[in-house]
Nucleic acid binder design. Structure first.
Lengths: 213, 213
DNA sequence: GCTCTTGGGTTAATATATTGACAATATATT
DNA sequence: AATATATTGTCAATATATTAACCCAAGAGC
């Protein structure tokens, strides 16, 4: 993982959204400045980590003052690419796909849902939040007329390999994969797997090995 | 994180579900034995890591032979607590809550959904997969009559602090939190946060810093 | 304006995680 | 039955991540 040719660990990158979230809250509460120390106490991490993390991307703070909340918020948003107006499409209009389509917080972060696709012809034509469901056959045509940055895969694992390869061939930049299969594709695409079952099993482990029941 | 008083890193624990998944696939394909080397190639990790990981929990393999797939599968399932018959309830019957309720793969992993709750009285009485939605007021009574192990929180972040504390007071063992707020509770409860927005923002970072567009 | 305090950036120290190496032991082969 | 081969469990080496320490710039107080 890189930033301006500088190597940045994925652990650091995964913390950025959390910083962004906390800074957003501060901003909402009209806090204009914050020190790494105070932020660390709120977030339950070390101040050192915050300073180290942020310094991967540049010196955003000022000695004796701290960080300007609004400035830092926007900088991190920028690093995360939230102001690039990325477009998304959902593949699979099942329960999960619908839930994601209705999940307004993604729009709030700058992601714009522009299409929903499914193989089930019974669903085609139906609308979710003003976006009509298209058949998978229309995928290629859709790409001719729209810039699609991110594909959200909410389909059973059986179909994932084929569909994802198709999306990559069409030039998609990223895949957000909810299917119960690891995606390891040939080609120039970024992948983020969300394995809900894995997360639930991890919780199950924690409960099982927890020492008080 | 511990296993039989032995310290096991969370990184190792988070890999267990993945091993479980791959072993399940092998089992389905009637593979009876596998070496760490071959498994490592399929999974895209090092053989050393697999051996090291598994040895946190015991010596499941045999020199010169490898691992018995079925045995290892069951052992890991057991370590993860998948055969303990954990019960779950969903708090929040919005889009995400419904999607999770309909997500059958959790049942397949041994988790049993026994209740759905919401504050919206219009939804009360409605059924999802045979489970009727109850009003939050009934929560305490429900706990008197049922053993509830895991609470799935699919509600807006505003309500999370109050609801989660209530669940902890009622003796819940784990919280699977989908709300856009970190849960850091007092009390004897295990927590697994799933921040979908964070994951999407991480993908956005990867795309943004990717070096070919 | 001078001094004191705050607090970021950076380097060093420590802790954790991953990978590599190999002896020990079971299986497979002849 | 003896030998060759496969492959684990474990220890050591390396790499990565986190935390601590400290220097020095900027702001606050007088």
């Amino acid at each position: 993982m890189f930033y301006n040719d500088k190597k940045v660990s994925i652990a650091v990158v995964r913390r950025l959204p959390r910083y962004y979230r906390y800074l957003g809250e501060l901003l909402k509460n009209d806090v204009t400045r914050i020190s790494s120390k105070e932020l660390s106490e709120r977030m339950g991490v070390t101040a050192s980590q915050i300073r180290q993390d942020l310094n991967c991307f540049g010196g955003f703070g000022q000695q004796g003052y701290g960080y300007n909340v609004e400035y830092l918020y926007k900088e991190i948003g920028n690093i995360l690419g939230l102001y690039n107006g990325y477009t998304t499409i959902i593949i699979g209009a099942g329960n999960l796909g619908r839930a994601l389509a209705n999940h307004s917080s993604f729009e709030k972060r700058g992601f714009r849902l522009i299409g929903i696709f499914d193989i089930n012809r019974d669903l085609v034509g139906e609308e979710i939040r003003g976006i009509k469901i298209r058949h998978m056959d229309e995928l290629e045509d859709f790409f001719k007329e729209n810039r699609v940055d991110i594909g959200i895969l909410s389909i059973p694992k059986e179909g994932v390999a084929e569909v994802s390869q198709r999306l990559v061939n069409l030039g998609i930049k990223g895949l957000w994969n909810f299917s119960y299969a690891d995606l390891n594709l040939e080609g120039d695409v970024e992948i983020e797997n969300v394995h809900l079952s894995d997360s639930l099993m991890t919780l199950s482990y924690k409960i099982t090995q927890h020492k008080r029941w």
